[in-house]
Amino acid sequence: MRFTRAERSIHHVTALLMLVCLGTAAALYFPTLSTVVGRRELLKTVHIWCGFALPVPIVLGLASRAFRADIRRLNRFAPHDWEWLKRGDRRAVHDGRGVLPVGKFNAGQKLNAAFTAGAVMLMLGTGEVLTFPDPWADRWRTGATFVHDWLFLAVLAVTAGHLWEALRDRGAMTGMLTGRVDRDWAARHHAGWVDAVQSEHVQNTNGQETGTAR
């Protein structure tokens, strides 16, 4: 079990809102697309609503214990995470096991999560200034536009990278779509996590703690 139903819902709703934000942003921003699509008032309305809705699934998701636990995992960088970033053979597999004891998330996933979290907050803040500009002086508005514009390009690149990595890894896709991954995939990509899950499982069957089967 990799992701609970709650976690998957949080991911899917956030992903949908993010894609709509990026799609409408592209149509509002890139001149060639704007020329074809037009309809600024409609696009702007959709963009603003989806933008302000973006943090809602994440905030609601904090009610989920599994989601909070994963946020904690994404936050923490262990020594093997630094090694994962440095080494060229970070994805190497030996005897069906990844050579590095990667936890539930690898360092790349952690960086992606941190960047996305920071970007969402910045986009919300600057987006608020752009949506309700009246109380702000010109230089703040222009500054907010500057950050919103250039950060958009970065978010576009990082999201494309995230989708690229996900789409070429069937195991990872299955994990996010069904919540489950098979043990061999987990051992290859997240050896440290498999060990942790297994030792927890042993503890559970020894009767030290009852209830959760994670």
Partner: peptide, 10 residues
């Protein structure tokens, strides 16, 4: 668990 790099990035 390691250092809170994610938080520092944010």
């Amino acid at each position: 668990e390691g250092s809170p790099v994610g938080r520092r990035i944010v």
